[in-house]
């Protein structure tokens, strides 16, 4: 009875430690994801590339679709 009560207590401490860890990891995830999203933004890339003298193209890329002859 006493032993199992103690083991339950132990588990409670373990759970609280782990749920803290989950919180921390979630926080780290959002932090990194937010940074990634900011880095991915076109306006950010545009301003970074301006330093190198590269600007946004006024024309869209051209996609070449090759039609096979055996049709």
């Amino acid at each position: 009875m006493i032993a199992s009560a103690h083991s339950a207590d132990k588990k409670v401490f373990e759970i609280s430690r782990m749920s803290n860890e989950v919180k921390e990891l979630h926080s780290a995830f959002v932090d990194k994801r937010g940074r990634l999203m900011r880095l991915k933004k076109e306006s950010y890339i545009e301003s970074e590339m301006k330093k190198k003298g590269i600007e946004i193209s006024l024309n869209p890329p051209i996609k070449i679709k090759v039609k096979s002859q055996e049709q």
């Binding site: 946004i56 024309n59 051209i62 996609k63 070449i64 679709k65 039609k67 096979s68 002859q69």
Partner: peptide, 19 residues
């Protein structure tokens, strides 16, 4: 408008170059 225009690739179809 320009952004959306430049984001959509123009598609050029050509016949197969393989022979």
């Amino acid at each position: 408008a320009q952004k959306i225009y430049t984001d959509t690739p123009l598609i050029d179809e050509i016949d197969s170059v393989e022979f």
